[in-house]
């Protein structure tokens, strides 16, 4: 494979729900082994974009390539095989309530029959240790965990099958700043250890700088800026700078009903 082919490439991706054009021609490149942070206001289409990459939502138009292959035109079996290489951390964790933590963590490995149920308990303990949780947590159910612990378990589940692409949907939303920083640290560790390519959605600027090598801003369904995450706050792009500084005045006007 050519070195210059991005790991993930989106071109002209459009998606509308009824009359609302959520994605309006998204163009984005994510280099292999890079961590890309996507910024944008609520309802700007960030989660829809991630779901399009995962194949959970079918775009109306456009091209989504992973390792140079157009995933939208792949046969279903190939697409499923490709999804086996992708891990996802959902905004609210999306842990399965009816299963204990160890089974949640090793769900994908068990589903793919890569591991026996007996071995899965040990594997879960190993992965839980990587996210700073004791092996005994494996026997609890998700409803018995705090929000921070649920995020860690969700992170453990996302990385347990050692994916080479990991998607994070607002990993620190709803957590206190210290726990947010802990989760960010774990994400960086996991992504580096696996040598994975990551896309993270966040509203949290501190989190974006900690997690991301690169950043992109989505506004009104389009990518309006991409650049190093370290530059956030002084990019020279009014939209990004206003968003990064959390300023009320600027080119981004919140749609408020009066």
């Amino acid at each position: 494979m050519k070195q210059d082919v991005p790991k993930i490439r989106l071109r002209g991706v459009r998606k509308a729900f009824g009359t609302k054009q959520v994605l309006d021609g998204i163009d984005l490149d994510v280099a292999a082994r890079h961590s890309m942070v996507i910024l944008g206001g609520s309802g700007s289409g960030k989660s829809v974009m991630l779901k399009c990459i995962l194949g959970l939502i079918e775009p109306d138009e456009g091209v989504i390539e992973i390792d140079g292959e157009d995933v939208l035109r792949m046969p279903r079996r190939e697409r499923e095989a490709l999804n086996d290489r992708i891990g996802m951390l959902f905004q609210n964790g999306a842990l399965f309530d009816s299963l204990p933590v160890w089974e949640n963590v090793c769900f994908k490995l068990l589903a793919q029959k890569r591991i026996s149920r007996a071995a899965a308990r040990d594997k879960a303990a190993e992965v839980l240790a990587q996210v700073g949780l004791a092996a005994s947590v494996g026997d609890l159910y998700p409803s018995e965990l705090s929000g921070g612990m649920q995020k860690r378990v969700a992170l453990a589940r996302a990385v347990a099958a050692q994916p080479d692409i990991i998607l994070f949907d607002e990993p620190t939303t709803g957590l206190d700043p210290i726990m947010g920083a802990v989760i960010d640290g774990l994400i960086v560790d996991c992504v580096r250890r696996l040598g994975a390519t990551a896309i993270s959605i966040t509203h949290d600027m501190a989190s974006a700088r900690r997690i991301g090598d690169d950043a992109a801003m989505i506004h009104k369904g389009r990518i309006v800026w991409t650049g190093p995450a370290a530059n956030l706050g002084h990019t020279g792009n009014d939209l990004v700078d206003q968003f990064a500084r959390g300023e009320r005045e600027g080119p981004i006007q919140m749609e408020l009903r009066r």
Binding site: K51, L54, G55, L56, E80, N83, D84, I86, G87, M88, F90, A94, L95, F96, D97, F107, K108, A111, Q112, R157
Partner: peptide, 9 residues
């Protein structure tokens, strides 16, 4: 959780 199932093969 249903979307999560899909992402978990």
């Amino acid at each position: 959780q249903i979307d999560a199932l899909t992402t978990l093969s």
